[in-house]
Amino acid sequence: MHADVHHLLHAVEAAELHSKAGEFRLPRAGLRTRVGWTLVEVGLRLTAQGRDTAAPRTAAFHPA
């Protein structure tokens, strides 16, 4: 397929998806749900930071 035709088809499909997305709305989450997901995000960020600075866990090697 020619690159220009591929780009045109992609643009048409993207426009269709954008118009359908405008019709779809998620229900508003309650405060409890939003706070819960925020805590999950904070926890994931903290564990990701801990992995960067933690010493690698390796078995101790003692030559015989």
Rank of each mutant, 00 (worst) to 15 (best):
P27K: 10
G43F: 06
K20G: 04
L26E: 13
T53V: 14
M1F: 00
R51W: 06
H7D: 14
E23F: 06
D52K: 14
G50C: 07
K20A: 07
A64L: 13
W37A: 14
L17E: 14
L31I: 03
W37G: 08
R57N: 01
G50M: 12
T58D: 12
K20T: 03
H2L: 07
L8C: 00
V35F: 12
R25P: 00
E23W: 01
L17N: 14
L8M: 14
R32I: 13
H6G: 01
G50W: 05
S19E: 14
L8F: 13
S19D: 14
V5D: 15
K20F: 08
P63I: 05
G22N: 10
D4L: 11
R28V: 14
L8Q: 10
E41N: 14
E16V: 14
V5K: 13
R45V: 09
P56E: 09
P56H: 08
R28P: 08
A3D: 02
H62D: 05
L17P: 00
A54G: 03
V35Q: 01
S19H: 15
H18D: 10
A55V: 07
P56M: 05
V12H: 06
V40H: 05
E16F: 08
G36T: 09
A21Q: 08
H18W: 11
G22V: 00
T33W: 08
L26N: 09
R57Y: 03
A60H: 00
D4G: 08
L39R: 06
G43Y: 01
R32C: 11
S19V: 04
A14Q: 12
T47Y: 12
S19C: 08
H62Y: 05
R32M: 12
H10I: 00
V5H: 14
L17R: 15
A15D: 12
P63L: 11
F61P: 00
A60R: 04
V42E: 15
H6M: 09
A15P: 00
H6K: 12
V35M: 06
R34T: 05
R57P: 01
V5E: 15
H10F: 04
G50P: 00
T47I: 11
R25K: 09
A64S: 07
G43P: 03
L8S: 05
R51G: 06
R45T: 08
L9C: 09
P63W: 06
R57M: 04
K20V: 02
T58H: 07
L8A: 07
G30K: 00
R28A: 15
F24C: 04
H6A: 15
G30F: 01
G43E: 07
